[in-house]
């Protein structure tokens, strides 16, 4: 499944970028995307073989997660705007770095978790060493999700999307 799936993603990307639908351009698109899919099909999706249905369910869960994430991004922007436009921002700031251990296994899940941490209120992921995350938090309240016992809310979401955990 993975090489042909990569091929169709590449072909859709080519068609969107070229915008021509005659035989010549489509043929060149099929040739080049076939070449790329043959050479590097295990880069875009990781090599382990899975059923198509599981992948589709995962994508649906991911879209559901993106909706929740977008709400968090809006909250984060109002938070940072309130901090920046307040009269004395130093009175509200209390920056510190916390460190926590995650239970996520795959690289892609960790990547999604790190980017989500960056986009949610008051936290920026600084460094990932294997399964240890360094997170910079701008106030004490914003790091509460990660400093409690067990996985925080966001990590439970990511585990629900990618590894079948409970939410």
């Amino acid at each position: 499944m993975p090489p042909i799936f990569t091929f169709f993603v590449m072909l859709a990307f080519w068609t969107a970028l070229s915008g021509k639908f005659d035989l010549f351009h489509l043929g060149m698109g099929m040739f080049s995307s076939g070449l790329v899919a043959w050479l590097s099909h295990d880069l875009l999706f990781e090599g382990h073989s899975r059923k198509l249905g599981a992948t589709l369910i995962e994508i649906a869960c991911f879209v559901r997660y993106l909706v929740w994430l977008f709400g968090q991004i809006v909250l984060a922007n109002f938070h940072i705007a309130g901090l920046a436009l307040s009269l004395y921002p130093k009175k509200h700031l209390d920056p510190h770095i916390i460190k926590f251990r995650t239970s996520l296994k795959t690289d892609f899940a960790r990547f999604v978790l790190a980017n989500s941490i960056t986009l949610t209120p008051g936290t920026v992921s600084v460094r990932i060493e294997d399964n240890v995350f360094y997170v910079h938090a701008i106030t004490r309240r914003s790091s509460a999700d990660f400093s409690g016992p067990g996985p925080g809310e966001m990590e439970r979401w990511v585990a629900w999307v990618f590894e079948g955990g409970s939410r």
Partner: peptide
């Protein structure tokens, strides 16, 4: 570090 907060969130949205 605080400036990174402002840049990373506000810029994206």
């Amino acid at each position: 570090y605080s400036r990174v907060h402002a840049a990373g969130k506000g810029d994206t949205l």
